[in-house]
């Protein structure tokens, strides 16, 4: 009864009401930020006295914002490629291997995801100071790769679980060499997992703040670092504009992912 939607009785309006409130709670801050980015009030008064594009103009007029966005994009792109490639190999090894300690290894690969990022950030920062990688693009990439990789291993690993190894064997008997079979058959067959891995890896790097704060230098900042640094000064509406662009970007990615899923079904 309690799990039959039609038979919930008085519980139903209660649950629906609560869910509606939670939805508002989850969506309103996002809507609110988007609205304020077009509001004229420097003090972010709501509702805004009038509407304006000046925060966006200020955002685009400052080359440091653009530069940090490009830095973010570059790092996220490289991290995505490396994460998918290394993650595919690792997932393949974990999926197909029967070597000793396989389960322990899987757990180890996923630890960077559950560990407090600040611990990893501080530890890497110490190491990079010694290696001279602090404040470099390479340092950034390594740091973000560590937290992106678990997403790739999980996404691609799940896809490989659902992929029948016999299909690869069939390709091999058809005359394809093992690697040819993997690239021409396995990779396309698990492409949804690879796509998910790419999106998650990209977002993991693109949105990452804590590691970035430690890896950044005055001349090398990602977008989140730039937002962070500005936020610590004041609550300028320019950040609302930057946030709105990020939110639009997120929605775009979600739509892309949804379209991709739909395309796979058809």
């Amino acid at each position: 009864m309690l799990l039959d939607f039609e038979k919930l009785g008085i519980l139903r309006p209660f649950l629906i009401g609560l869910t509606a409130l939670v939805c508002l709670f989850l969506i309103l801050p996002i809507v609110f930020i988007a609205a304020l980015s077009f509001g004229s009030s420097q003090w972010l008064i709501f509702p805004p006295p009038s509407w304006t594009f000046k925060w966006y103009q200020m955002l685009f007029a400052d080359p440091r914002w653009l530069y940090s966005a490009l830095t973010s994009l570059k790092i996220a792109a490289i991290v995505t490629v490396l994460s998918v490639v290394i993650g595919f190999l690792a997932a393949l090894g974990l999926n197909r291997g029967s070597f000793f300690g396989r389960e322990a290894l899987r757990a180890l690969f996923l630890t960077p995801m559950i560990l407090p990022v600040v611990v990893l950030a501080v530890a890497l920062y110490a190491l990079f100071l010694q290696l001279g990688l602090a404040g470099t693009t390479v340092g950034f990439i390594i740091a973000h790769l560590l937290i992106a990789l678990p997403f790739s291993i999980i996404s691609i690993g799940n896809a490989l679980e659902g992929f029948d190894k016999s299909i690869e064997d069939a390709a091999i008997l058809c005359g394809a060499s093992p690697w040819e079979a993997r690239i021409r058959v396995t990779v396309p067959a698990v492409s949804h997992g690879i796509f998910a891995a790419a999106i998650f890896s990209f977002l993991a790097s693109w949105d990452e703040v804590v590691l970035a704060i430690f890896m950044a230098s005055p001349t090398l900042q990602t977008l989140p670092v730039k937002i962070w640094a500005t936020l610590r000064q004041d609550l300028t509406p320019v950040i609302a504009a930057a946030s709105t662009i990020l939110i639009a970007f997120t929605i775009l990615l979600m739509v892309l992912a949804a379209l991709f899923r739909k395309g796979r079904k058809a």
Binding site: D164, S166, A170, L173, P188
Partner: peptide, 14 residues
């Protein structure tokens, strides 16, 4: 150069 039909369906899904 041997042909094989497997127990499970092994057509390339893509």
């Amino acid at each position: 150069n041997i042909g094989m039909v497997f127990q499970r369906y092994t057509l390339f899904p893509h």
